[in-house]
């Protein structure tokens, strides 16, 4: 009886989480142009998607921002985690607290504050004849900033678990600090680095609020493009593209997770 109840509850939560996703996948095969009407099955949106240059541009921007921001945030977060790890407890708590602000603060406040800083910087630079254009660079900086705490949080626990003696042993055996880091420390914390990167990539891909405030006119990611389409009605190609992205990531995650199972943990 208890087992049955638990099972029903799990199914209920699962339906709650995945019903919208299933709805979107079905809508991507809807022959009718509006989501309010069902016009029979079709795959035409999957073809016309690739001829829609506006959507393809937004996809390109989204992916390039996600890859770059996740990479840079991972590198920056790695240096932050390494230097925080060798700090005294007090300064570590303070700096970690500051790094965590974009994670704990409201997204809207982070977005607004970044927008204000870019405007202030632009005003400052006009004195020297430069201008700041809201677009690719401002969005990239915004994404790196909110990705940073997640990367640091993924790497820090792995660094704490690390056995310091192995690093010292490598130094004793004549390895340079650089070589000891790359051969001994980095392989040990790699799972944390990797999950930090993946998390940063996912968050960047899905972000709307911060992008909404720091993007300029003319620069669109998939999220901001969807937001402007909400009033006019979402183009069916958008459902098709999301379905493609979702399925390809699902397949990718399954491959990644099936292989190195015994290696992590």
């Amino acid at each position: 009886m208890r087992k049955a109840l638990q099972r029903i509850y799990l199914v209920f939560i699962f339906v709650l989480l995945y019903a919208p996703i299933l709805t979107l996948i079905i809508l991507s095969f809807n022959a009718s142009k509006t989501r309010a009407k069902w016009g029979g099955w079709t795959a035409k949106w999957y073809v016309s998607l690739f001829q829609n240059s506006a959507i393809m541009d937004a996809l390109y921007n989204t992916l390039i921002i996600a890859v770059l921001s996740a990479t840079i945030a991972t590198l920056l977060g790695l240096t932050a985690a390494l230097s925080l790890n060798s700090m005294r407890r007090r300064s570590r708590t303070i700096i970690l607290g500051v790094i965590n602000i974009p994670m704990l603060n409201a997204e809207i406040v982070t977005g607004i504050s970044l927008m204000l800083v870019f405007i202030a910087l632009g005003n400052f630079l006009t004195q020297f004849g430069y201008t700041i254009q809201f677009g690719f660079w401002t969005v990239l900086i915004g994404h790196i900033t909110f990705n940073l705490p997640y990367v640091v949080l993924s790497i820090m626990p792995k660094l704490k678990q690390l056995n310091r003696s192995t690093y010292e042993a490598a130094l004793d055996l004549g390895a340079s600090p650089m070589r000891a880091f790359f051969r001994v420390v980095l392989p040990d914390i790699m799972p944390g680095v990797f999950s930090g990167f993946l998390l940063a990539f996912t968050l960047s891909l899905d972000d709307f609020v911060i992008t909404h405030f720091v993007k300029g006119p003319g620069f669109e990611t998939l999220s901001t493009k969807i937001y402007t389409e909400v009033r006019k009605g979402i183009k069916p190609e958008m459902y098709a593209l999301s379905t493609l992205l979702f399925v390809s990531v699902l397949v990718l995650l399954l491959i990644v997770n099936v292989k190195p199972k015994e290696k992590n943990k």
């Binding site: 919208p20 996703i21 899905d206 999301s242």
Partner: peptide, 21 residues
């Protein structure tokens, strides 16, 4: 995985899907 995977479907579209539902 089960809870992160939905995040790969765009947040706005996921929320919009509730309109349809």
């Amino acid at each position: 995985m089960i809870f992160i995977i939905p995040m790969w479907m765009n947040f706005l579209l996921r929320t919009l899907a509730w309109q349809t539902l």
